[in-house]
């Protein structure tokens, strides 16, 4: 059975849990004591992922790190419909937004670790970067809504939506509300309505 090395408060692990649930894939988890135990920096974990980051996903002998890469693997191996990672003109756009979710949007993760777990770092700088990323996404989603679209790319949800949702929804942990982002507010509701949606601490399951 596929195995997710998981930390319940990690937005990146949540990306993987979301897609696993939406695709109905049975999996087991192994809790990693990321905080306060810093288990992800211990030799046993570094042997799995030398970067010392969560999540890690094991599937039929394959050991994968990086939430975005794991989403690609799941879509490619388990989604017969091809909806979540379309192999047509949408492919490049999905990849572009995946990079954004694993890149610019992760400023929210950094700010959240400082605000919530007292990690060292410059909170104000990361919050400013996070706001820039959220505005960029809100502008994009507003353009999509004007064209009648609900999703980041194309007419169906893709892994671009799944990769982006967790830290957008968790931005309040970083001290950033959604008042400035009406299109994000609308899109979030669409993601929450998807079959198989699950919440996480900080992302209530109700909608």
């Amino acid at each position: 059975m596929p195995k997710l090395y998981d930390y319940v408060l990690s937005g990146s692990c949540y990306k993987v849990r979301l897609l696993l649930n939406m695709l109905g894939i049975a999996y087991e988890t192994q809790a990693v004591d990321f905080f306060p135990g810093r288990e992800h920096k211990r030799p046993e974990f570094l042997a799995l992922n030398p970067l010392g980051q969560l999540p890690v996903f094991e599937d039929a002998g394959l050991v994968l790190r990086d939430a975005q890469a794991i989403l690609c693997h799941l879509a490619s191996s388990y989604d017969a419909s091809g909806q979540w990672l379309p192999r047509d003109v949408r492919f490049g756009s999905v990849m572009m937004w995946l990079s954004f979710a694993g890149g610019e949007l992760m400023a929210i993760s950094g700010a959240r670790m400082i605000a919530m777990l007292n990690y060292p770092g410059d909170l104000a700088t990361l919050q400013a970067k996070a706001r820039t990323a959220l505005r960029l996404l809100d502008d994009h989603l507003a353009d999509r809504a004007q064209a009648g679209g609900l999703w980041i790319v194309g007419a169906t949800p893709t892994i671009a939506d799944i990769a982006s949702f967790p830290y957008v929804a968790l931005s309040h942990d970083a001290g950033i509300g959604h008042e400035d982002y009406p299109a994000i507010n609308l899109w979030q509701r669409q993601v929450r309505k998807l079959p198989g949606f699950v919440g996480m601490p900080g992302v209530p399951g109700y909608f």
């Binding site: 319940v8 408060l9 809790a31 990693v32 004591d33 135990g37 309040h172 942990d173 601490p201 900080g202």
Partner: peptide
Amino acid sequence: DAELSAFQQMIFVQDKI
């Protein structure tokens, strides 16, 4: 220990929002 801690952290961070 990781499971016990994760359970309680999950509960507490659900309250945090």
